[in-house]
């Protein structure tokens, strides 16, 4: 069994078998990170480039460690300015990188669709490291891995995703993946943060968080971008925390052993209270599993004659 594409652009369209393959492969790679010598030679001689147009310490570090633990040569190119401002187009930048013979290009970009744009024009494998508010496939995979690791299954679980759904690629990728794996999904947030027709992706919409977390197996909190207050998406942090923050009291409405997840970085006291974040949450397990999942993805994408 192999992945259908040379790239990992999104979870949308992936089959349960493909997701299962990545998660199964990730468990083997998780063991590697727990050894003294945290390295296997699988990608020896391969070149992996992190091309990040959007700052992100966590995701870049995770991809970088994943590549290095697979023995690939990993290079980071971080550019906070847009390609337009720099005077070179994304395509030209990427073609230059490819000309230096790179095997896997991880692209993080604030424009939705940028990885797809490159994937159709380059022969390297493109991994979407998060694009705009479209998809963040490796985040959803590590979330699913963590759920499966903690609960033994995904199918039949109720997962509540809370926050700015409209501007969240994490939410979209998780909605696709969790649906495919048979979970029931609830999304919750203020009406200003709900994109049009989101229910059509297969999620039940809530504005009342108490209802949304009632009996949930998993609660996935999204990071609130505080600067969105200026665009009228929410009136202020105080009200947001009151209506959509996860407190211990609110958590008690969920299943007793409910998993609390967050893609990070967290705004303590805004979307999640410190006692919940530090107490029962699995936020750090997510981070650990991120490396394993990214190793699995690179491993699976680098095998095989291209275009199979």
């Amino acid at each position: 069994m192999a992945l259908a594409s040379k790239d990992l652009l999104g979870i949308q369209g992936m089959t349960a078998d493909e997701i299962g393959l990545i998660l199964d492969t990730a468990s083997s790679f998780k063991d590697v990170s727990e050894r003294d010598i945290k390295k296997v030679p699988s990608l020896r001689g391969k070149t992996v480039i992190n091309l990040f147009y959007e700052a992100s310490t966590r995701t870049r570090t995770s991809f970088e460690l994943a590549g290095k633990r697979l023995s690939a040569d990993v290079l980071n190119i971080a550019t906070s300015t847009s390609s337009v401002a720099k005077g070179e187009t994304l395509l030209d930048t990427a073609r230059n990188i490819e000309a230096m013979k790179c095997d896997i290009l991880i692209l993080r970009h604030f424009c939705s669709g940028a990885p797809e744009f490159l994937a159709s024009r380059l022969t390297s494998s493109i991994i979407n490291g998060g694009d705009g508010f479209h998809e963040h496939p490796t985040q959803a995979l590590l979330d699913m891995y963590t759920i499966r690791e903690k609960r033994g299954r995904i199918e039949g679980l109720t997962v509540t995703i809370v926050g700015d759904i409209a501007h969240s690629r994490v939410a979209r990728s998780n909605i696709y993946g969790l649906n495919t794996m048979g979970a029931e999904i609830r999304i919750c947030g203020p009406a200003t943060m709900m994109p049009r027709d989101i229910e059509r992706l297969g999620a039940k919409k809530y504005h009342d968080m108490d209802q949304a977390v009632e009996g949930a197996d998993v609660i996935m909190m999204l990071r609130l971008q505080l600067e969105r207050q200026a665009t009228g998406l929410f009136p202020g942090v105080r009200e947001y925390a009151r209506l959509y923050g996860l407190s211990r009291e609110r958590l008690s409405r969920a299943k007793q052993d409910a998993l609390v997840m967050h893609p990070g970085p967290i705004n303590r006291g805004v979307e999640i209270s410190s006692d919940v974040a530090d107490g029962t949450s699995v936020i750090l397990d997510q981070v650990t599993n991120g490396v394993a999942v990214r190793m699995a993805v690179m491993f699976l994408l680098s095998g095989g004659a291209k275009g199979d």
Partner: peptide, 21 residues
């Protein structure tokens, strides 16, 4: 499980799922 240590990954058409070590 020696899957991660194989020398033929790039030439195989699909990757074997590594079993437990």
């Amino acid at each position: 499980d020696i899957t991660m240590y194989r020398d033929d990954l790039a030439t195989r058409t699909s990757q074997p799922v590594p079993k437990t070590t």
